[in-house]
Nucleic acid binder design. Structure first.
Lengths: 148, 148
DNA sequence: CCGTATCCATTCCGATACTG
DNA sequence: CAGTATCGGAATGGATACGG
């Protein structure tokens, strides 16, 4: 699979991001990490996934610099997986996934979990794509300038 | 694979989004769709992927309501795959992938393709997660309220 | 409790050949 | 050009057994 290497070296930032996190388990693990999960079994139970797969995905995330391993906060001899600064940089992406799901994949009135600002208890504002002047920009007002 | 069904019915919007687009090829196809690709071979050449896989992924995107099939704009008897309104709702997500890649996955000075506002030729503003008052919110000031 | 190792079934992927 | 059909190899996923 020459694929793996070529994507991670691609001149397109989307391709590199997809190479790093474009996998269903990785995205769900990251969601849980943002939601406060830190322990192996916490991820495992929350996601209901096989432990060998979880082990593999956690390693990928650590290797990719999105999670780091820390000694457990309780007395136990084990470790915890916590988001790095690079990991936190994925927050807008997770929010985008969440808001897309909320607005497009639930029928009206259907209940779903919600991301709230802790201080106010209110949901966040919808993400908006803005230009440098702070004006909202739709996709058709943009274009990709390829690297030559 | 009970997985497929359970995720698409999950009470978490992130899970449903991941179920729909949490795949490397799907995300890259969508990137190219936002970049103007419409024809089968356009996607195929741009991505260098096997045609049977592309066929499968395009079908998934059409079934998921993200793309729709239209008669070709030139005289040919073929069809084009264009983003639906639901597909356009993924714009912030694609932008998030791009900006994460730009800021985290390129060394400084390394060249990469860029998404520009067509009118001004300038890059877009960085996505920000805001509360209802328009104040920027970091991940640790939020929490997920689970559905009961 | 925290993982790793192994086994087996399923899926995915790329290459190729084929049809309209 | 725009796909579909098939085939073999690789990767993935779940279950389980095992060791720290």
């Amino acid at each position: 699979m020459a694929e793996r290497l070529s994507l991670s070296q691609a001149p397109c930032p989307v391709a590199r991001s997809v190479d790093l996190i474009g996998d269903r388990w990785l995205l769900l693990i990251l969601r849980d990490a943002f939601d406060g999960s830190r322990r192996f079994s916490e991820f495992q139970r929350g996601l209901g996934m096989a432990r060998n797969i979880l082990s593999d995905r956690l390693r990928r995330l650590v290797d990719g610099g999105l999670l780091t391993i820390q000694p457990a906060s309780d007395g136990s001899a084990w470790q915890e997986y916590v988001l790095t600064e690079r990991g936190y940089a994925l927050f807008p992406l997770i929010v985008a996934l969440r808001q897309f799901g909320e607005s497009e994949l639930f029928s009206s009135g259907e209940a779903h979990s919600q991301l709230l600002e802790s201080a106010s208890g209110q949901p966040l504002a919808a993400l908006r794509v803005l230009n440098q002047q702070g004006e909202e920009i739709s996709a058709d007002l943009t274009h990709v300038k390829k690297i030559t």
